[in-house]
Simulated scan of single mutants.
Amino acid sequence: MTDQTTDFPTLRKPVAVFDAGIGSYAAVAALQRALPRQDIIYFADRASFPYGSKSREELLGILNRTLQFLSGFDPAAILVASNAPSITVLDDLKDMVSVPVFGVRPPVREAMQQAKGRNVAVLGVQSLVESAEMRAFAATEAGNEAHRVHLINASPLVELVESGAFLFDQTSTQEKVDAFVSALDARHADIGAMTLSSTHLPWLRSFLERSVQGRSLLDPLDNALGAILPFAAEGRSQILGLVTENERYTANDFQRMLDRLGVTLPLRIVPRLNED
């Protein structure tokens, strides 16, 4: 790992993917599978973790600075790989750079189709599920069946990923996922499908599948990747890994999680973008 922010490798029209933590690496892996020659920038803004606890004003500032930073790499597209800012602030910011900018949004309509008349749970971080923007989005997607859509604070599940517990303490992780699903079912009857509306939650899919007993789990990332594909540019399959850090969420700890996932990706530490 290095703290040098110069002498970056030469990338050809990379797709830039960013989030505040490990969740967004799932988007990188999916892009590699779909576009094996595409150059990619993976930016983990650990200094801003968690996006889910930030106010609208804080998210506007974070995304403003991040989009400006990543646009300096001449990307083919930028993916905001986090549901909360994608829903709450991205529409206000996506035209501020000349690069196509995409987000990830809960697949409410698809979930309702798979639920087949039963209810839907949108699992997301607190700032997402409590936002007026998410309520409006769900109402638009669900129409006159909006009463079937329940917005659920899944921040405790996100923390299982960010802490690395899902890698290093799988027994405890399963117990906590089981308890979360049991509490959800006790609070909201007849849930037929759930959306994993934090990019962290797909890392818990195997744990959730053991708990939800065959109910559908939908990943918002699928739609986002489909939107990016037309902007692909053939490169040399390079990935540039960038990370910010703070006292609690260090680059070394983040590298350790990547290593445990079997991801070989040297990280370069960049200055915290949320500081002047």
Rank of each mutant, 00 (worst) to 15 (best):
V270N: 09
Y25D: 00
R272H: 05
E162F: 13
L204W: 06
A81C: 11
A27I: 05
N119Q: 11
V212I: 14
A77T: 01
D7C: 11
D190G: 02
L225A: 10
A232I: 01
M96P: 00
M112F: 11
L267T: 05
V177F: 08
V243R: 01
A138C: 15
V15P: 04
H200Q: 09
A227F: 06
V28D: 02
T171N: 14
R33G: 03
R65E: 13
R135Q: 14
E175F: 07
L93S: 01
A232N: 10
Y25F: 15
V263E: 02
R236G: 10
A233L: 05
L67P: 00
S24G: 15
L261N: 07
L196W: 02
F231V: 03
N252C: 07
D74R: 04
R12I: 13
D74S: 14
L258K: 03
P100N: 08
R260K: 14
S206H: 14
D19V: 03
G235D: 02
L217D: 05
R187Y: 02
T264P: 00
A154Q: 00
Y25E: 00
P107A: 12
N153R: 01
A146N: 12
A34E: 12
F207L: 01
A26G: 14
P230N: 10
H188M: 05
S48T: 07
Q4C: 12
S155M: 08
G61C: 07
V181L: 10
R37G: 00
T264A: 15
L221P: 02
P271D: 06
R248H: 13
G214R: 09
H147K: 12
G23W: 00
L93N: 02
L258H: 09
A251W: 02
S55C: 03
L67M: 06
S182Q: 15
M1H: 13
A146R: 14
I22N: 02
L221Y: 07
L123S: 00
D219G: 08
E141M: 13
D169K: 13
I62Y: 11
P230Y: 03
M134G: 04
P202C: 10
Q213Y: 10
V80G: 01
D7R: 12
V149I: 12
P156Q: 06
A165G: 03
Q126T: 13
V17M: 10
G164L: 12
V120K: 01
A81N: 03
A193W: 08
F49C: 02
P100S: 07
R256V: 05
A30K: 13
T140I: 12
G72D: 07
F73G: 01
K116C: 12
M194T: 04
S155V: 04
V243Q: 06
T264N: 14
A165H: 06
I239S: 04
E162D: 08
Q255V: 05
P100I: 03
I22W: 13
Q4N: 15
D259C: 09
G226Q: 14
E133C: 09
L59H: 04
E57V: 11
M257H: 06
L90E: 03
G117I: 08
S182C: 07
S24Q: 14
D259T: 14
G21M: 03
R33C: 04
P14R: 09
L265I: 08
A111W: 08
T250W: 00
S163A: 08
I269F: 02
L59P: 06
L242D: 11
E58A: 15
E133K: 12
A138P: 05
Q32I: 06
N153H: 05
E175P: 00
Q213A: 15
I152K: 06
S206K: 11
L79E: 04
